[in-house]
Simulated assay, not measured.
Amino acid sequence: MHEAVGSDDHQAVATAARTELRGPLIRDVLATGPTYWALTEYHTGVTWVDVARTPLLGWGTYLGVPDITVTEPPGPYWVEPPRWRGDLCYRPTLFDFIMRGAGLVPGPASSAGTEQV
């Protein structure tokens, strides 16, 4: 997340979640550092990259989520809580965000004129 945003500041990530991902994002600080979970739709035909660093959780996986009112540490918290039931990050936008963080695609400034869905 921080690589995609280009900042170590968690507020910059929160702003990017609101403006780019436009969906729910959870942050947790584990022994290995901050971990972010963007909630997105899953289906068995999804292909994903860099599974070791950005796992796509699927069927049979359980993710503990904080109470909807928890929006700051300690513990896991919502960087951007769901705005309504069924609110999710748009998977292609999330995928592009991850690819940008991996350095495989340019940032949003150089993608001007592309259509946002």
Rank of each mutant, 00 (worst) to 15 (best):
D87G: 00
V13Q: 05
S111C: 09
R85I: 14
G45Q: 12
A16E: 03
L57F: 13
V29A: 03
G64V: 10
P81A: 08
A14R: 15
A14I: 02
D67F: 02
G33E: 09
R83H: 09
F97K: 09
P76S: 15
T71I: 12
T54H: 14
V46F: 04
M1H: 09
W59L: 13
R53A: 15
G64W: 06
L63C: 06
P106M: 01
R27W: 09
G75F: 07
W78K: 06
G6F: 05
G101K: 11
A109N: 00
W78V: 12
Q11S: 13
A16F: 05
L57M: 07
R18P: 00
T114M: 14
H10V: 12
G33W: 07
P81G: 09
S110Q: 12
R83Y: 06
T15W: 11
P24V: 13
V117P: 10
L21C: 08
F95V: 07
P106I: 01
P66F: 07
L57C: 00
W84E: 13
V105M: 12
F97G: 10
A17I: 00
V5G: 03
G64D: 14
G113S: 03
E20C: 13
I26T: 11
I98E: 10
F97R: 13
V79P: 02
G113N: 00
L63G: 03
E72F: 09
P55Q: 11
P108Q: 08
A4K: 04
S111M: 14
R83D: 06
H2D: 11
T47Y: 06
P34I: 03
E3A: 15
A16C: 05
G6D: 01
G58M: 05
L94N: 10
T35W: 11
R53K: 15
V29H: 10
G75E: 08
V79I: 15
L94A: 08
T44W: 04
T47C: 06
Y90T: 05
G75T: 06
G45L: 14
H2N: 14
A102D: 14
P92C: 14
P92A: 13
G6W: 02
T32N: 10
P76L: 05
R22F: 01
T15E: 12
T54I: 01
E3G: 07
V49E: 12
V51H: 08
V65C: 15
A14F: 04
V49T: 13
V65L: 12
A31C: 03
R22Y: 04
V13F: 05
T40Q: 06
I26F: 10
A112S: 11
G75N: 04
P73W: 09
V46E: 00
G86S: 13
M1G: 11
P34D: 15
P76H: 08
E3D: 13
G86E: 08
R91N: 09
I68H: 15
T32E: 07
R100Y: 00
P73I: 12
T47H: 12
Y42H: 14
L57K: 06
F97Q: 02
A102L: 15
